[in-house]
Amino acid sequence: MHGRTRKSKEELEDSEYLDNQKQEIARYRSKLDTVFQQRNEKRFTSDCLKSTSELLNLNPELNTVWNYRREILNETFKGLSKEEKQQKLNDELEYINVSIKKNIKSYWMWNHRQWILANMPSPNWNQEAKLVDLLFKLDATNFHGWDYRRYVMSKIQETEDKKVVINREFLYTKKKIDQNFANHSAWHYRSKLLPVILENEKESTLSKEVEMIIQAIYSDPDDQNAWLYFDWLIGFEVEKTTMYNLGIDIASELLELEPNSKYALLSLLKYNLALNENEPISPETKKNYLEYINRLRNIDSLRLGLYNDMEENVMNL
């Protein structure tokens, strides 16, 4: 048409995208209004349950809607036999199995999964552990999943030998750490299991843990998890001097290969300071400590404040 500017292909695509977005937002708001109206009216029918499914598929972070969903389910349980309730919750578990794969990091989904199993007349906790393991193939570092796994294992320990379960889980964390040394959740879970393991085999266990830490550190010097685990491990060693010296040896050897390893430098400084705690240090030792701090400043300029504080502490020794 005369007098009208022809839109480019890009402008037409942008316009179409914006129109689609507006339609999606309108649909979402409509479903949101429907669900909240149903809850306000205290309706607990199968249609209401379907409405929550449709809305949660669009946004799984609506805790209020998850609560409403549980209210609906609790109403449907009234008058049911144990077998019928079991089937209802099995169906709900299937719904979560599909949904959680799409959003494995949703806290509310993991919370709802826990609620399902806790309310089942006959929960299969061992099967649940296998299913969680399958979900870890999507994201083995997901801390929500690891929290849930600890919950599942606490239930399994109610019917199985606690030490057997813990030993099995200890091996499981090793498997996951070997797959990815940066799996902080696996390291954290291992730290929760280790105290029980140490009750029977302290010396050999500590030795194996140190070997694993060294392997992790050399595989990825820039990952902090193994260093943190070593720090935590020191708390279980009566002779801390031995562990500090071991940490110094590990850090020193690594720095020969990786001179700019931030965590090796931090550990070298930290363990040396721990060994010299409450003792006067020589000018040469102080000079070495200040050199470590200067190297850290050059490597990690984002934390200059921390290194300035460390320098002040060293100067006051």
Rank of each mutant, 00 (worst) to 15 (best):
N20Y: 10
F170R: 01
I156W: 04
I250S: 05
M212K: 13
Y271S: 04
E203I: 14
D19W: 03
E256T: 11
S267V: 04
D161I: 08
P221T: 07
S81D: 09
H188P: 00
E169P: 05
R29P: 00
H188G: 05
E311Q: 14
P221M: 06
V164P: 02
R70G: 02
T242E: 13
E10P: 03
I217D: 08
S46P: 02
E291K: 13
L254I: 08
E201I: 00
E11H: 09
P121K: 01
E94H: 12
L269A: 12
V132N: 10
S46F: 13
L171K: 09
L134Y: 09
A26L: 08
Y95K: 00
S51F: 02
Q38M: 15
L55H: 02
E237F: 10
L56Y: 01
F136Q: 09
Q23P: 00
L304S: 12
V314Q: 11
G305M: 07
K50Y: 12
E24S: 07
V210C: 04
I293A: 02
N119P: 03
E75T: 04
A129M: 07
T285P: 06
I100K: 06
N167V: 06
K42Y: 05
W146R: 04
S46Q: 14
H144I: 00
P195Q: 02
R303H: 11
N97K: 11
L73G: 01
N278W: 10
W108Q: 13
A226F: 02
Y218K: 13
S106I: 06
S282L: 13
S282K: 06
M315T: 14
K101I: 11
H184F: 15
K9R: 14
E158S: 05
M153V: 07
M243C: 05
D14Y: 05
K130A: 12
E24R: 02
S204V: 12
K9P: 05
T205F: 03
N57P: 04
L49Q: 03
D147A: 09
S154I: 05
K262Y: 04
I96F: 04
E10R: 13
L296I: 07
Q21F: 04
D222F: 11
K240Q: 15
Y189D: 06
M109E: 06
E169A: 04
I299Q: 01
E84C: 08
N288G: 05
S15I: 13
G3N: 12
K130Q: 14
V238N: 14
D139L: 02
M310V: 10
D133I: 08
E84Y: 02
I299T: 06
T242P: 00
A140W: 01
L266A: 05
L89Q: 03
N316F: 14
D19I: 10
E158Q: 10
D220N: 15
I213T: 06
C48E: 10
Q127F: 11
I166M: 08
V210R: 01
S204K: 10
K130D: 15
L55I: 09
L89G: 06
W108S: 10
Y271M: 14
D300E: 13
A26H: 06
K174T: 08
Q215R: 15
G145Q: 08
F44T: 03
S51T: 09
S261Y: 03
E258K: 12
V132A: 09
F181P: 01
T34C: 11
N288T: 11
S282Y: 08
M243F: 15
M310L: 15
L138V: 11
R39I: 06
R70C: 08
E83L: 13
I234E: 05
N119H: 11
Y189T: 11
I293C: 04
I104N: 14
R297K: 12
L198T: 09
S207D: 14
N142Q: 05
